[in-house]
Design a protein around this nucleic acid. Structure first.
Lengths: 223, 223
DNA sequence: TAGATTGTTAATCGATTAACAATC
DNA sequence: TAGATTGTTAATCGATTAACAATC
């Protein structure tokens, strides 16, 4: 059985934004060509890994010279799908939802927050930066009328599941979940978590491991 | 040459918080035993993976019955190092820093935000929930006096590197970096990113892949 | 040219998954 | 007991890394 197209590895996808930030800096400095070797050094990666990652974009480099900075940027942006701007809504206008709605960096990812929704009537009609806050009841209608694709979920954990289901029913394609809750949704909905607990778990584990290593003696780090 | 202790796999660490949330729900319901099979089903994982993960905590189960809910919770919490509360400070009292300082969920991870710091003199002396905001100049002294271990970095990207170096010099052990910037720090400092761009990149790629697959027909994704 | 860098093919490494005996 | 579940050992899978020919 032929499964065919396998897709770009998730770890590679995760490194792309770092490449992009670095490359945009180089572009601003007027640099035209960049080698995988330099990118690797700058990001603490191995050159071979950077080359492998870049090869996923389909772009070609010149031996001894490297890659065109602008072409590489374009290729990565295209590979991530960040060249087509997508409208998104934020659900939950609490502290986190508010910070997300106001965040200006999303533009460069092709993400545009067009509205926020909340159950709290006191927030209706207010603005989070340039983003208006509407009643949650208006969500379904808004999504249908404005063809919103992405829902940014920033509600409390105990309302995450039901809100996600509402988003799904409204026709949202993908959910970016900031609530500390694992959603159970049918596989046709794309869900991506940004879970503080998960991130902090890795930090904690690294700290703990470092302490353990130091106790068991062994080597030293310089600097 | 014997390298010895290898540590718990990062993917396992990342799944632990999901197990914990689920288990705490079961504990509240008064459930005493739980099987890996049930946990797996609830989280959309394979039973074998859950068993492997659990085995990393060192806890033992009973065939046909499962694991003690409370013992499993304790074991995971201990494995993550969440049983020892750690003091942390937030640097940058903008929208994101403010949301982080006010977030109450950190308690259950053994993380306590004790202060925030900002360059903006207008913010000095104000409070983010229960967290006071101090001048950035006071950071070094504060860290030394209060033995703060963790710095939560929520400053703009163009100040992230220098602020991280300040934290390092002040004696901070680990940095939780929310700035969209890759930090260059010596290996003895533990750094963990929570990068919106990275998370959104995965979301974008999944959406794009799904569209492509739908065109080519065929099946689904994980995560 | 010589040397650095690309791109491909193969080897390695680590995590996931499968198989199955042990056990309550 | 029979059947479900654990825990271990081996197989598989995917990503990283190594090796090296091609090339500007």
């Amino acid at each position: 059985m032929e499964t065919g197209y396998r897709g770009i590895p998730i770890p590679t996808i995760k490194r792309f934004p770092s490449y992009l930030r670095l490359l945009e800096g180089y572009r601003e400095e007027g640099m035209e060509m960049i080698s995988a070797t330099t990118l690797a050094e700058e990001l603490g990666l191995k050159p071979i890994q950077v080359r492998k990652d870049i090869s996923c974009t389909g772009i070609e480099g010149k031996p001894k010279v490297g890659f065109s900075v602008t072409k590489l940027i374009e290729a990565i942006v295209r590979t991530l799908g960040w060249d087509n701007a997508t409208d998104a809504i934020v659900i939950g206008a609490g502290h986190l939802g508010s910070a997300l709605a106001r965040y200006e960096g999303f533009e460069s990812y092709g993400l545009k927050i067009v509205a926020a929704f909340d159950v709290d009537s006191q927030k209706w009609g207010t603005w989070l930066g340039n983003v208006p806050v509407y009643p949650l009841d208006k969500l379904q209608l808004y999504v249908e009328e404005h063809h919103v694709n992405i829902g940014v979920l920033a509600v409390p954990a105990d309302h995450a599941q039901e809100t996600a289901e509402l988003l799904m029913k409204s026709g949202i394609v993908a959910i970016w979940n900031f609530a500390p809750k694992d959603l159970k949704l049918p596989p046709h909905v794309v869900v991506q978590r940004t879970d503080l607990a998960t991130s902090f778990a890795v930090l904690s584990a690294k700290v703990k491991q470092k302490i353990q290593k130091k106790e068991l003696s062994i080597e030293i780090d310089e600097w």
